[in-house]
Nucleic acid binder design. Structure first.
Lengths: 129, 129
DNA sequence: ATAGACTCTATAGTTGCTATAGGATCAAGC
DNA sequence: GCTTGATCCTATAGCAACTATAGAGTCTAT
């Protein structure tokens, strides 16, 4: 299949697929006589692996590391484990940050009784402090 | 005071201060004879306003809009209100997304009983599906 | 006079894409 | 055989919000 087809079945844009290839996250596909990329079932699996990792916000560099590990089946998986643990820490940290943000934004929202002028807006007042 | 001093009292890096100036978020400061930027107390206030907005993840373009509104004290503050409400929506959405992420990552973490080989790693297995 | 601390501008790099320009290829219809 | 439109190709630029670097000028102290 050609790239447009792979894009449809995977839900990744054509540019993104080419970008992943350039970044070394996908095996280099074969080419047709007219220099079009040709993909097969295995390519779909590869792309879906990357997509799944990305849906977990795993950075491309880490996905690359995972792909290397996938090809060393006999090694210890402790680095995979710590990679995921790390990712979890990041997510937890970000959730905590966003919750702090949320409560401050909520307070600000309440401070503005719409219909005010800018001059007396409680939001601007709180942003100034 | 010069930019290094402002950087220290504000906690913003020198490059960030210059960047904010270039983006029109800070008033253009006066210059010394040797072409160094010179700041005063008002500059600190301005920078702190921007910093506070940024700590709420408000994008620079929105901060710019807020600055314009600050100079029209007699206008209605409803656009400030909706800007903040919008920001709150975004934060809430992101929190929900991250919570989904978090639970999937937790499941994956459990799936790996460290000491496994890469081949039998529960994490890789779940990433493949 | 010179060393070192600070500042200046301009430019490139970061991340993970998305969008565009300017072309080549291919299948279908006339 | 020729054209049209859909698809593909590469290379490059743009996004957000910075950070980092190069290469130069300025200021202060000795």
């Amino acid at each position: 299949m050609k790239i447009g087809q792979l894009s449809k079945v995977s839900g990744c844009s054509i540019q993104t697929i080419r970008y992943y290839e350039k970044e070394g996250l996908l095996n280099v596909p074969s080419r047709s006589e007219g220099n079009f990329r040709l993909y097969d079932e295995k390519s779909i699996k590869e792309l879906e692996f990357v997509k799944h990792c990305r849906s977990l916000d795993i950075p491309l560099s880490d996905i690359k590391a995972l792909l290397v590990l996938k090809n060393k089946p006999e090694e210890s998986c402790s680095s995979i484990n710590s990679l995921i643990a790390n990712q979890l820490d990041l997510v937890n940290k970000r959730i905590r940050e966003l919750k702090t943000l949320k409560s401050e934004l909520q307070i600000m929202k309440k401070a503005c009784s719409s219909g005010n002028t800018v001059e007396s807006c409680g939001i601007l007042t709180s942003l100034n402090s």
